[in-house]
């Protein structure tokens, strides 16, 4: 009965071995402090799927004129972020937001600056067709990949079918993205027991002072949004208005929820790998970490949705001393993992 059904309803059975399960190798610090990443039931990670996803991520045939891949804006040598303020698509058009790094995405509940994507599988559909990004159509991409000499076999190995479609492309890319785990910065090494994180003792004393400013509610108070040693994602995965503007050209979360109380709120970015991910903020308005810290210290702008944690807003912020600002910047730099770059 079952075999009859299988023959009459299923696709013609192709004789390929099942793909090999992909075991995520968690860095010690992730293993210690975080739950395992949540993998959707309908897209288990496999060795073949991850390899295929990486190939697709780097493939320019996912764009209208074969010039642009995901990696054109998410540069592997820049922690998968864009060093341009706004990414330029294939037609020379600028987007309105800065491309953030792709790192530790498996632990993120929502994606994009405004939270408009909820899964990596869904997110991967949009850049391909976005007019200011890769500007093509999925049927075109499917046709180009199907005509390739290698792809049909790679899809067969990863998903058991040579029929390439957008759903499988996005699944493979999502599998690859889940492997982009970064946790080998000097600060991680310090937490793992390496004296001074491999830096000099004088430098490290300043890093630890910077960490204390980061954690002190009456000083930087950064940790309430950006994580702490026991939250190695260095983000709270939530949306806040950190006082950049008085009025908003880009409503951020409010544009998605249509709730005015959410206007000007954006997803807290991770503080990992900042040395490679400039410029900063959703619109890439700051080029240096010194400018970012100055913003929190003296540059806050008031608005109805500003986060309650932003203090002394009338005076622009908590007015850190020069030494405090320098040490805070050095601490931020110690969260950069150069072994993650590809």
């Amino acid at each position: 009965m079952i075999s009859v059904l299988g023959i009459s309803c299923g696709p013609s059975p192709e004789n390929t071995p099942d793909p090999n399960p992909y075991e995520i190798q968690y860095p010690a610090i992730m293993d210690q402090y975080l739950p395992p990443i949540r993998i959707p039931d309908d897209n288990p990670m496999t060795v073949e799927g991850v390899e295929l996803g990486e190939k697709l991520f780097l493939d320019t045939r996912l764009s209208g004129d074969n010039t642009m891949s995901c990696a054109s804006c998410h540069l592997p040598e820049a922690s998968f972020s864009d060093q341009a303020q706004f990414s330029i698509g294939i037609d020379g058009l600028e987007g309105r937001r800065n491309a953030m790094p792709l790192v530790n995405l498996g632990w993120m509940f929502t994606l994009l600056w405004d939270g408009s994507a909820t899964s990596l599988e869904n997110q991967a559909f949009t850049p391909v067709v976005d007019p200011v990004e890769m500007h093509t159509t999925w049927p075109d991409v499917e046709a180009r990949l199907s005509a390739d000499s290698e792809y049909p076999d790679l899809f067969l190995k990863a998903f058991g079918t040579r029929n390439i479609d957008s759903t499988l492309v996005s699944k493979a890319i999502a599998q690859f993205e889940r492997t982009l785990i970064s946790a080998n910065s000097p600060f991680d090494k310090f937490l793992g027991g390496l004296p001074n994180g491999g830096w000099t003792e004088t430098e490290w004393e300043r890093v630890l002072n910077g960490r204390d400013i980061f954690l002190a509610e009456e000083k930087g108070d950064c940790f309430h949004c950006h994580g702490s040693p026991a939250n190695p994602l260095w983000t709270d995965n939530f949306f806040h208005n950190n006082g950049l503007d008085e009025t908003f050209d880009d409503p951020g979360l409010g544009g998605v929820t249509k709730n005015p109380a959410d206007n000007g709120k954006f997803k807290t970015p991770t503080l990992r790998n900042l040395l490679f991910t400039a410029p900063y903020m959703h619109d890439g308005r700051f080029n240096t970490l010194e400018e970012v810290v100055e913003h929190y210290s003296t540059g806050l702008k008031n608005s109805p949705t500003i986060d309650p944690l932003m203090k002394n807003v009338a005076e622009g912020g908590v007015q850190l001393t020069q030494q405090e600002k320098d040490d805070l910047v050095l601490f931020l730099k110690s969260l950069t993992d150069s072994t993650f770059l590809r």
Partner: peptide, 18 residues
């Protein structure tokens, strides 16, 4: 206990050690 509960760490619920 600091860092003991992965779900609470993920929720950024930690209280500073200092």
């Amino acid at each position: 206990i600091s860092g003991e509960y992965p779900d609470l760490n993920l929720a950024n619920w930690n209280w500073p050690d200092m």
